[in-house]
Design a protein around this nucleic acid. Structure first.
Length: 276
DNA sequence: ATCTATGCCTGGTGGC
DNA sequence: TGCCACCAGGCATAGA
């Protein structure tokens, strides 16, 4: 599932490929991906040029002349740039045709992804964007306000770190890695954590996210990045997907449980509950 | 107000 | 190319 490092990798690739390309037509073969009216979506995009590809959290934002296309890849969304002569696969649900004979296709096996247009400069008018917390790897992040949100909650820390309104960008992989690095049990309640521990969690999350960006993200299961280019961070994982394998620190087998309906991997010896 | 459960989707896997 | 239950999970929404 693309998390911040994977989406950033996609952003960089798309930004290099798409700047200056002008849209001449848009085809949508699975309408629910498009938020709002599909015909309006198409008519607003025609004759618009892609000026830049931005990102906030896990959202891609294609900056056009008058509009911003906000795209979330959810679990398996991918973009491909190909010739308009190429045959489409059955999983390519949205196609942006450019005037130079190339096209950008949106491929999403599970159809979970979303796209929405908003007037350029008014991205915060979208509820989904407006409610996002600060990006987890923002070097100027305000630990105090994050601590306040975490400390007043009885939810498990795993769920809190996945909550994009507290900090945004983390998904299931990097939360498991962050909790391991900080030696925190994923079911520890937010209100059992000290400010010092919350700071350590955010510091470790920033470190793991930035390291993953440097390696082009993580490729596991069927989750490959745009253009068939795979990241390398899967080789750096300590606990996620490592059930029954020895903990890299103490050799105790990694276990898998469910926390808030999410598969969760951790070391039962290194990661303990309780006040920290 | 807070928190939890459910639905959205399809391909891969494992048990029979 | 057997059949089928189950799993993967980010986010919006319904319900407790």
């Amino acid at each position: 599932m693309p998390e911040l490092p994977e989406v950033e990798t996609v952003r960089r690739q798309l930004n290099d490929l798409l700047i200056g390309r002008k849209i001449v037509d848009v085809n949508v073969s699975y309408a629910p991906i498009i938020q709002g009216d599909v015909r309006m979506f198409q008519s607003r995009l025609i004759h618009q040029t892609i000026n830049r590809v931005n990102r906030y959290g896990k959202y891609l934002m294609f900056e056009l002349d008058d509009w911003t296309l906000v795209s979330h890849l959810r679990m398996e969304g991918k973009y491909y740039l190909k010739s308009s002569d190429d045959v489409l696969s059955k999983h390519e649900h949205v196609v942006f045709l450019f005037e130079d004979g190339y096209e950008l296709t949106y491929h999403d096996v599970r159809k979970f992804g979303t796209m929405e247009l908003v007037q350029k400069g008014f991205e915060k008018n979208l509820v989904s964007i407006n409610k996002l917390g600060p990006e987890v790897n923002d070097p100027m992040i305000d630990i105090k306000s994050i601590y306040q949100k975490i400390h007043r909650s009885s939810r498990p820390i795993k769920s809190l770190l996945l909550d994009q309104t507290i900090v945004c960008g983390l998904g299931n992989i990097y939360v498991d890695e962050t909790l391991f690095l900080t030696r925190i049990h994923p079911e520890t309640r937010g209100n059992r954590l000290t400010k010092k521990t919350v700071k350590a969690l955010i510091d470790n999350a920033r470190g793991v996210v930035n390291k993953a960006i440097g390696l082009g993200g993580t490729t596991i299961r069927s989750y490959h990045s745009t253009l068939g280019i795979d990241g390398l961070f899967q080789n750096e994982l300590y606990v996620h997907t490592k059930k029954d394998e020895p903990c890299p620190i103490c050799q105790t087998p990694i276990i898998k449980i469910r926390v808030g309906q999410r598969g969760t991997y951790f070391c039962p010896r290194c990661q303990k509950k309780g006040e920290r």
